[in-house]
Design a protein around this nucleic acid. Structure first.
Lengths: 134, 134
DNA sequence: TGCCCTGGTTACCTGAACGTTCCCATGAGG
DNA sequence: CCTCATGGGAACGTTCAGGTAACCAGGGCA
């Protein structure tokens, strides 16, 4: 596997602590961040909170709102409130948000294609745990 | 931006909590994990602890050892101890580890090419903080 | 008058990640 | 003898992400 052009700063030690991939990974580090963005992407870019929560089993209201607020602050997602009864709210990806869907979907595809490797890692961890904690 | 083949499970809600990308991101979620793997990759696959630590400013001995132990448990990295004085130890990527270098380097390249978007996110956050705090 | 729905907020708790600091063994060199 | 450097470990504390549970507003509806 040979990787194509990589900027010079990433080719020679020392490596900065806040390099691009760490920044990207920090963006994606929230437990639900990526799944929410992925879901918004797949349902066409916009979704109501209820629909979103139903799409992501295990996601609590609090964590959903909190994650969405963070995404709003980064302007990856925007919220629209319709003044009707009962209240209707819609979250949708911004242009900037859509830009970050790209590396995200790369990860989805890589992960799907290399499920075997991911399984192997889990097995290795389980074996190590079993060995250390008899 | 149109994303090519994506497995069916990722196309229709509900979306599983432990889908491939989350597993991948969990692997990469340690603060130093990716930087250590990237460094090992770039220095040719193997490195001594001292060299590694010098290559990553801010990395403490404890966090380095801890991260490397985790990587060993997953068998992404292996350790070789040379019985000489002073002790010489070498860490190197395993085949499995090298497999995971691929998505990692994808993230590095994407991040480098889209630094502007990452900067924008930081600016948006800073603006939101300034608005909410004063 | 209760009780449902909607979306959201608050207080509180717990575990883990991260980091600092001090300590260990070994042998070389002064 | 003390001190250096090697690679590692143990104790400890802080911070924070994540989760639970309760509550709130506003109307519909019986």
């Amino acid at each position: 596997m040979d990787i194509a052009p990589l900027p010079d700063a990433y080719r020679h030690a020392p490596f900065a602590q806040d390099c691009a991939p760490r920044r990207l990974l920090r963006l994606f580090s929230g437990k639900w961040t990526t799944m929410i963005m992925h879901t918004l992407h797949l349902v066409g870019g916009a979704s109501r909170p209820g629909q979103l929560q139903r799409a992501l089993p295990g996601l609590s209201k609090k964590m959903m709102t909190q994650t969405l607020r963070d995404l709003e602050r980064m302007r990856l997602v925007e919220r629209e409130i319709m003044q009707v009864m009962p209240p209707v709210v819609e979250y949708r990806l911004t242009d900037l948000g859509r830009e970050f869907v790209e590396p995200l979907e790369m990860l989805y595809r890589w992960g799907a294609q290399h499920a075997a490797a991911l399984d192997q890692v889990d097995r290795n961890m389980a074996m190590a745990d079993a060995r250390d904690a008899p």
